Each structure stands twice: as structure tokens, then as C-alpha cells.
Amino acid sequence: MAGTQSGGKEISVGGELRRQPNRFTDRITPDGTWPVEPGRYRLIVSLACPWAHRSIIVRGLLGLQDVISMGVVDPLRDDTGWRFTLDEGDQDPVLKIKYLSEAYLATDPTYDRRVTVPSIVDVPSGKVVTNDFPQITRDLHTEWRAFHRAGAPDLYPEAMRDEIEAVAEPIYRNINNGVYRCGFATTQEAYDNAYTDLWDELDRVSARLESRRYLMGDRITEADIRLFPTLVRFDAVYHGHFKCNRQKLTEMPVLWAYARDLFQTPGFGDTVDWDHIKRHYYVTHRHLNPSGVVPQGPDPSVWNEPHNRA
């Protein structure tokens, strides 16, 4: 179906968000075309982006910081895409490029779609290996195991993978992507459908977490890492900016305690950058917030209140 563009994301004629497929889907494996090799690859992220956030968390929890380097783009995305203006000389210090789009064009000179994060770039060639964000974290678990830190958690245990995917798929469809479906809807019907899907799923997840500490039970897994980036942005961005306003996260006792539990776990809260998150959404999405004014609240200190879930 033909569509129009809004905020760099495809919107269908029916008013509903349609995401473009990931263009680069190669994988880094011990015996593949792109071999596992410490120091060879660079993970490019935005601290504002929930899809990139999950890769930051996994990289840290598994202790891969010295194995896969990381570059951070400016939270404000302009017409040329993600920029490296946070670094000296306005260029990434390793890749020596000013825009992530340069790596995309080095890989495919005809590329004319949206440039996305996270992306993993091969440093020697400057080419993008993958921007397939779901597979990136799976492969950090499975393909880089030889370089995990001692005592690293098994976030994607083989015996639980089918269950993790079964739980995480509706979370992605209705919550992770659901907030965007609400925010970028251009018809009332599309918004209403997305809103209903979002809150039905949040209620289901809340009910699941009433009887278990984490989504899979008593251990943190990939499923929790996929949900957390949306929850941590909920009151600051999605509740108002994306019209996901039945309740605030702080008004949902189970989910709020669960989110604080994760936030206070090393490797989660210390990866949250409130300034990047709020400036990206409220300044970049001028069609939703024409003034570009960034709200002062909410108070982030509440995230450190006791969660009582241990």
C-alpha cells in the first residue's frame, strides 16, 4: 500500500504506522562471512532510542564493552539523519564519519531509506553489517559467548527461547511498537486500535507479573530487556507526547514496581539518559510538538524509590 512519511517512519494511507524492514541483516558468527572478532565492530546507538537501548543493556550485562566498541549519535536527528556531533570534530572517532548515513551509503550506494540505530559497522571496511535490532541482541547472547565476562547472566537460555519469543512478540507488537502506533496514527480509527492493543497488552503483562518477579520467573531474560526501554520512557514521553494516556506508569502498581526493580539493577538505570530521551522526542518530532519545547518533568528521582519485589 502506498503511504506517506511522518517522523521518518512510514504511515499507511489508512493512518496507521508501518515500519520499514531492516535493510542490513547479515550476522556476525564465529564461522560466518562476518567473523566474531574482538575490536573489529562498532555498535552505533542513540541513547534516546528504545531499540538501541536494549543493545546497550545486553552489551553491558554480558561484559562486551571492551570487545565491541560503541559510538553514540546526537539525540537530535535532522534531515540528514543521525549525526556524530557529540564527538570532537563532529565525527565518530573510530569510523571517521560525520553521519551514520555515510556507512549506509558505503554499504549500498543506492540506499535512500531511513537510517536507523542500532547499527553494527565493520570498522576496517566502514560498512554496515546489520541494523536488525532484534537479531543484534540475540547474537550478542549466542555468537559472542566466548567473550562474555566471567559470571555473565544467561539472558537467552536455550531451553527458554521459545517461551521468551512467545511472550516478547506481543510485547513488541502492542507495547514497544504500540506506543509508536498511537503517536504516529493519523486517523482516529488507527489511533483507537493502537490504543486498545497497547493497554490490553499492558494489562496482560501486569497480570503476569503479579505472580513472578520477572517475565520468565525469578531471573532476568531477554524478554525483560525488550520491555524495559518502553516502560522507562513511558511517563516522560509516551503518556503525553504519543497520547498513551489511560494511566501513567506510576499509576500502575505492579508494572511500576517491576520497572523500578529493573531500573535499580546494575546495567539498567545507569544506561538511561533522560536528557537525550526527552530532547529527541520533543524536538525531533516537530509535527507532534511544533514548539520544540522540552518538558522539565517528570521527576526522575522516583525511580529510586523502594520497589519491594525482591
Rank of each mutant, 00 (worst) to 15 (best):
A48G: 11
T33N: 09
G81R: 05
R149M: 09
R213V: 00
R173W: 12
T284Y: 07
L140M: 14
T29Y: 05
R181D: 13
R181L: 10
T85W: 11
Q20M: 10
D200E: 13
L43R: 14
D275F: 04
G15V: 02
P290C: 08
P93C: 01
Y214E: 03
L262G: 03
T142Y: 14
H239L: 03
R233V: 04
R40Q: 14
R114S: 09
D192T: 06
R77L: 03
A48E: 07
A194G: 11
I136R: 08
P50E: 03
A103W: 05
F234C: 08
V45W: 14
G7Q: 04
E16S: 14
N304P: 02
M252V: 08
A168D: 06
V121P: 00
P134W: 04
P50L: 09
Y104V: 11
C182K: 06
Y191L: 15
A152N: 09
G267H: 03
T107C: 11
Q91R: 15
Y238A: 03
P124Y: 05
S12G: 04
T29D: 02
A207L: 04
H239N: 11
F84P: 01
K243Q: 07
S46C: 05
V294H: 12
L255D: 10
S12E: 01
L227G: 11
A103D: 05
V128I: 07
T130Y: 12
D192A: 07
R233S: 10
